[in-house]
Amino acid sequence: MLIKVKTSADVPYSEVTPEHIYRSRRQFMQIASAGAVGAVAGTLIGNGRGSVQAQAANYPDLPAAKKTAFVTDPAVDPLNTFEQISTYNNYYEFGTRKSDPARYAGKLTIKPWTVKVDGLVNKPGDYGVEDLVNFNQLEERIYRHRCVERWSMVMPWIGVPLSAVLNKVQPQPGAKFVEFLTAVRPNEMPFLNSAGLQFPYVEGLRMDEAMHPLSFMVVGLYGKVVPNQNGAPLRIHLPWKYGFKSGKSIVRIRLMDKQPANTWAVQTPHEYGFYANVNPDVDHPRWSQKRETRLPSPLMNRETILFNGYGDQVASLYSGMDLKKYY
């Protein structure tokens, strides 16, 4: 078994995926999804979970997104497929099994969508998605995603820097933290009362983390509108932190002078903290974080890298901090 360790997320622009490879990848996607249908029909002993299907073709296209230097080396971190990314989700409002969100999130109404912006900002108010995200300036970023449960994937998100969204509402100098609250729809979310968590789901960042160039506000996946189960219409992605820091279906952004009380840290404080930076040396009490499974591999096949391999870009945010204490 070959264990590949990538130590830096910095990729020179010369290594950015050329257009024709990207396009051939898209063709591969189409062939692969057609093949999946055949496999389900043709296999005598099927998967049993074959009813959960998510096909990129069912989602509307987004305006063209510009390529960025935020990519991965395809030889080390190849992209996961649209199907993998959109049928294996943690979105407890739609159920706690990984296949549940793909099954139930279709009910979520994402149009119209309003985001309430309040707290220490100069321009508070109710914003539509288009008011916060400039759809003429969309970027594609290929990010590694590491879940606290020890699995990881690589996804091509479409969106804008989180800093661009926050700059639109003009945070005041007193704003030290930003809090994100996610949607609560009793009529559309069947598991609000049984998931064992308090809703709305709350997450937050220190202001310098939120303004960091890596912090991304996502509206799309694989050039398409992001699927509901992945957090439509508006979600965060923070590639150096465990996945639970990246809230889905954001309905409120609040600028604060105090550290927000994020849901998992309130629920189980000895297991989850506020920072949740990917760190091989800080175990989850119930499992070691030294290794991870890059799905769909069946093996715990990778060494976890501090800050998920983005340390050269984000380590300075935490200089002088005891990462074992601030986990």
Binding site: A36, A39, T43, I45, N47, R49, E83, Q84, T87, Y88, K98, S99, W151, T293, L295, P296, S297, P298, L299, M300
Partner: peptide
């Protein structure tokens, strides 16, 4: 066992779901 065989021989990489170990 049959599904694991299909997965490990590359005949069907989706047969045990996205997270085969789980």
């Amino acid at each position: 066992s049959w599904r694991l065989h299909l997965l490990l021989t590359g005949k069907n990489v989706e047969v045990l779901g996205v997270d085969p170990k789980a």
